[in-house]
Every structure is written in C-alpha cells, then in structure tokens.
C-alpha cells in the first residue's frame, strides 16, 4: 500500500513539474504579482453587472 501511495505521489510530482516547466518555457505561466509586466490580463470582474 505504501509503495502505491509513494508511486502516485511521485508520478503526480513529476507530472506537475514537467507541466509547469513546459508552460513556463512557452511563456504561458503568468507571474502572479501585480507588477506591470506580470499577469498581463488580470481582469478584475468583482462588482460586474449581472447579465
């Protein structure tokens, strides 16, 4: 059982890191800080009118 849990954690970690690095390499991951240049389409929809 322990081996299965460890295996799942390991695969999930590798998947997450590879996916993240791939997205970063393609420039898809947006820096989360508010500095201009980061998060280039940070749309704040709070308070929008209900349609």
């Amino acid at each position: 059982m322990e081996k299965i849990i460890l295996g799942l954690i390991g695969v999930a970690a590798i998947y997450f890191v590879v996916r993240n690095l791939w997205k970063e390499a393609k420039g898809e991951v947006k820096c989360a800080c508010s500095h201009s240049g980061c998060s280039n389409s940070d749309e704040n929809k709070k308070g929008c009118c209900d349609k």
Partner: peptide, 12 residues
C-alpha cells in the same frame, strides 16, 4: 514607467 502593459478591469 511603472505600467508597461495595458491592464483591464471591470466596474458596474
């Protein structure tokens, strides 16, 4: 030069 990209926000 703090803002170098256009930013969009919504308001009602």
């Amino acid at each position: 030069g703090v803002t170098v990209e256009k930013k969009e926000g919504f308001r009602c």
